[in-house]
């Protein structure tokens, strides 16, 4: 085993350990500002883990949405409400732990059916992936296969997604609006 593989394995473990510590702390801490800060750390670590697992585009989304946008939204929520969390009665905590353990067990049971990580015979590597990996350089000419798939093979799909997001952004801006610039007294009310 060479040093690169050991390093990336150890990095995966370190990332998961940091995420675990952060998750437990989020569950324990009552100061919600600290929780928002810790969830930012959690998202950054998650994005790093996705990079190590070679899911660069997912990592990008996680960093933009998890660490960027949701931190801003959570801070906005804190500005409107309180930043202290009320204590939960112990009986409810026990029920919650029970439900979480049950779901965790179900997810672990479900993961037994999945192919091993990196298994070349997994169904996902048998369908269209060989064609993309083998011929996208000649057909599209981009070094990153994911970019070729998103921008060319699934170009219409990506364009549709962009339309949807653009429409959503226009709708939100129309509903919420932007703070209007106040004109100074003399020509007030002429434009907005």
């Amino acid at each position: 085993m060479n040093i690169e593989i050991i390093t990336s394995d150890l990095l995966e473990v370190a990332t998961l350990v940091i995420m675990g510590i952060t998750g437990l702390a989020i569950a324990r801490i009552r100061n919600l500002f600290a929780v928002v800060m810790l969830s930012g750390i959690y998202s950054l670590m998650g994005a790093t883990l996705y990079v190590i697992l070679d899911a660069v585009d997912v990592a990008f989304t996680e960093a933009a949405v998890g660490a960027g946008a949701s931190t801003v939204l959570m801070i906005g929520t804190l500005a409107l409400t309180s930043d202290r969390e009320l204590a939960t009665p112990n009986a409810r905590t026990v029920k919650g732990i029970f439900v979480c353990t049950l779901i965790f067990a179900a997810l672990v049971y479900g993961s037994f059916d999945m192919p091993l990580y990196g298994d070349p015979l997994a169904p996902v590597h048998q369908h269209v992936a060989p064609r993309y990996l083998g011929e996208s350089m000649g057909e599209i000419g981009l070094p990153n296969v994911v970019t070729s798939v998103l921008a060319s093979y699934r170009g219409y799909d990506t364009m549709g997604e962009t339309f949807v997001i653009f429409t959503a952004a226009v709708g939100v801006i129309t509903l919420i609006g932007r703070a209007r610039r106040k004109k100074s007294g003399k020509d007030g009310g002429s434009g907005s």
Binding site: E4, M37, A59, F60, A63, A64, A67, T71, V72, G76
Partner: peptide
């Protein structure tokens, strides 16, 4: 480590995103 220094671009974008959160906070 992985022999793909192209990840530097990604790292730079992370730095930009990190900046937005800090400004909001």
């Amino acid at each position: 480590v992985d022999g793909r220094p192209e990840f530097l671009d990604l790292a730079i974008v992370y730095a930009l995103i990190n900046f937005i959160g800090t400004i909001a906070v």
